[in-house]
Design a binder for these strands. Sequence first.
RNA 1: UCCUCUGUAGCUCAGUCGGUAGAGCGGGUGGCUGUUAACCACUAGGUCGGCGGUUCGAGUCCGUCCGGAGGAGCCA
Length: 462
Amino acid sequence: MKGPFIKDILKMNPDNKEISVCGWIRTKRDSKSFSFIELNDGSCMSNLQIIIDSSVKGYNEFINKLTTGSSVKIDGKLVKSPAKEQNVELHAENVTLYGEADPEKYVLQKKRHTFEYLRTIAHLRPRTNTFSAIARVRSAMSFYIHRFFQEKGFVYVHTPIITSSDCEGAGAMFQVTTLPLENIPKTNGKINFEEDFFGKKSSLTVSGQLEGETYACALGNIYTFGPTFRAEHSNTTRHLAEFWMIEPEMTFCDINGNMDAAEEFLKYIFKNLLENCREDMDFFNTRIDNTIIANLESIINEEFVRLKYTEAIKELEKSKVAFEFPVKWGIDLQSEHEKYLTEQVFKKPVILTDYPKEIKAFYMKLNEDDKTVRAMDVLVPRLGEIIGGSEREDNEQKLVKRIKQMNLNPEDYWWYLELRRYGSVPHSGFGLGFERLIQFVTGMQNIRDVIPFPRAFKSIDF
RNA sequence: UCCUCUGUAGCUCAGUCGGUAGAGCGGGUGGCUGUUAACCACUAGGUCGGCGGUUCGAGUCCGUCCGGAGGAGCCA
């Protein structure tokens, strides 16, 4: 597709310039002697208004075929529009119809559709305002994420999608196998994985963190940004079986440096989003959730609160709110607790640290009190946890002890432990789910609507 | 996996006490207007998710299966 694109045309000086524009017709309004067309090419939310006078060659043949959804090329003159709704419009001189869209059958007519229905036509939904805006915001956010890390000298590491470790413990895994399922080779009743493709039981990754740490412990600062798979039978507005995750890992960096990085990171990408995707963000703010822009602006401008878990528990115990889940030191915080802290107590993002070791992963660095670990969760108003991270345990003996405590086998982690044996360094990192981030900035309620082709439990229609 | 709700026209929904179905939007036709959520008139669309049962009679009641949504758990 060649330009100029409608995004740029709308900013051009309307000086009778001859241009050509391609796109899909969103709607048409006929008069006796001319027609108005709203043309969209995906470059932006706005349409370009086209006027086709009935004197244009072939008018009577093509005009009834220029229906919603049909694709055209229009050559014409860009002029100033006399009406208020737009600055410029295109006076067509030549019309080329590429593809018709039978209005009796094409379901995306100009009318509202529920997101639920649009999920059943995932191949057509990017042609709607909402889903094209989501696609642009997703793309832009990916770019800002890369740019943030690249500007800071982080190395982008491609961690494997297929892994042999069934030991990551972050969730149910999808097994990868070429064994014949109708006749699985077994020895003494147990599956013989030596005959499988990799010679070992293999799965799709649930996290690139452990592999990421190996590269961080050589290159300094790294990040991953790739697909992640969880085979959990979750059926919620916040879970996917296939989603994208960002996981930076920083060496010579403690929990405080980790918090600094997470805060700077969020502020950077949100600021870029508001500055560069204003039209799409205004749309979300108007049509989806009218708090998102104010919310993002306050996150950009406010300093995040930093609070230890123990302090947060005290704060919650002090409150008069009747929580569904009672508060007590040692519990994992429920989303009602997180929301209370971010929305009622502080009214801004809160970074909670130093959680009880029992409710956190084995690789998090143990504090001197032997009870808490250097975990950090970044909580934001409305969503709750947006980032989870920690300083990693860098002492081999302590790490082995924690692995055993969690009933895991240290032998499975031999290479991960060697990072602590040879040139171990304090290091930290965090992870964030990309789709939840997109949900947060767009206000979209269902995670299946912020990824082009959602994969979820019992759901893979496209 | 559990709990709740839901399935009627292309889409969004209404349908009373069980008596063979309606609206809005969208589509078609005609009219009108520098229109822009266009407007006005007319018009065509339905195996009421599938199967079984109760009944003289089921969109409506019962059973079951399938699909969808929301919540819980788990998590990102």
